[in-house]
């Protein structure tokens, strides 16, 4: 003790930091990453590697040389963005497309707004949607490459279950095994492969108090109820709720993307409104829109109304009935 340290109260601080929170998100994503690598093999590893490396590199270069801010690479947020972007792409995506996605995600969606905490839209989704619109052919190439295990998988499937349903109607998806899909067999982006892996991540995040369940559960509930009503009315035209919950990256989006701190509402009720909005827009796009799936679009659209939701929804204050 040389000189006494003096500062305003409180004098203690939680051990949770931005870094530890982001690290928890990475840990929660690991099951999904492992499953996707196991089933999609080297090409998925390449996508993941390119995506994470370019996101981290871009973050470093932009904060250091363009924004002249303290470097924020150490907080893992770029790693999370890179991971999510990779998991939102088909495992066959060429490396240069992944890189363009990273440029849009970090450079455009995150840094132009001022970096961590300032962006209006979820960077990974902006990157993904940009690629979907710019490179429709590559982005819907759902050929399944040879993985490390599971060689028996349908390796020439040309479309996602949702795509099949959009093209060929309800008849085209008959014979899909929901139990299969729950574990490892959802066609589509790399991260959607296993519902169980994603749910395991969700439970981890909840246990570590990284996220609250309101947003995720309200999205899933809205999707289930909305599709349930339509399915009950006309099961010949509309797909059933379980199918809708398991496909199209809904779990990935609702657990990891919609709950992004920066681009979701702060209050619990705001989160519910946000989730219901995402669920509704997703289902409207799926049933009536031109795209087979709409989670990314729904999240982007609802991202844009978050400031409004924050303005309306406030926490319940003490002594103010």
């Amino acid at each position: 003790m040389e000189k006494l340290l003096v500062s305003p109260s409180p004098h203690l601080h939680t051990s949770t930091s931005t870094k530890s929170l982001m690290r928890d998100v990475v840990i929660a994503l690991l099951p999904a990453v492992v499953v996707s690598v196991l089933f999609y093999g080297w090409s998925e590893l390449l996508v993941l590697g390119v995506s994470i490396a370019s996101c981290v590199l871009l973050e470093y270069v932009i904060t250091k040389y363009l924004l002249h801010k303290p470097c924020s690479v150490g907080d893992y947020s770029a790693v999370v963005t890179g991971l999510l972007l990779a998991l939102n792409l088909p495992s066959t995506t060429p490396w240069w497309i992944v890189f363009i996605g990273a440029v849009v995600a970090i450079g455009v969606a995150k840094m132009t707004f001022g970096g961590l905490g300032q962006n209006l839209f979820n960077p990974a989704i902006v990157g993904r949607v940009f690629l979907l619109i710019s490179f429709p052919a590559q982005m819907t190439d759902w050929t399944r490459p040879q993985g490390f295990i599971g060689g028996g998988l349908d390796s020439i499937s040309g479309a996602t279950p949702l795509g099949l349903a959009k093209e060929g109607g309800i008849a085209a998806i008959e014979g899909l095994d929901y139990m299969d899909m729950l574990f490892y067999n959802i066609g589509g982006s790399a991260g959607e492969l296993s519902a169980i892996a994603l749910i395991a991540g969700f439970i981890y995040l909840l246990c570590r108090r990284v996220i609250k369940p309101y947003i995720t559960l309200s999205i899933l509930a809205t999707v289930a109820i909305f599709s349930g009503i339509f399915w009950a009315i006309d099961p010949a035209t509309y797909t059933d709720p379980v199918f809708n919950l398991l496909t199209g990256g809904l779990l990935l989006g609702s657990i990891f993307m919609a709950t992004d701190y920066v681009t979701s509402p702060m209050s619990n009720w705001g989160g519910v409104i946000f989730g219901v909005g995402i669920g509704l827009i997703t289902m409207l796009i799926r049933y009536f829109g031109a795209y087979p799936e709409g989670v990314s679009f729904a999240i982007l659209i609802m991202n844009s109304v978050v400031p409004l939701i924050n303005k309306v929804c406030h926490a319940k204050k003490y002594g103010r009935a």
């Binding site: 340290l5 500062s7 004098h11 203690l12 601080h13 930091s17 931005t18 929170l21 303290p70 924020s72 907080d75 947020s77 970096g115 961590l116 905490g117 300032q118 701190y261 920066v262 702060m266 209050s267």
Partner: peptide, 13 residues
């Protein structure tokens, strides 16, 4: 007791 360096608000609530 020493406070860590201030970083950007991530709006975690």
């Amino acid at each position: 007791t020493v406070r860590g360096a201030e970083s950007a608000c991530i709006r975690c609530g």
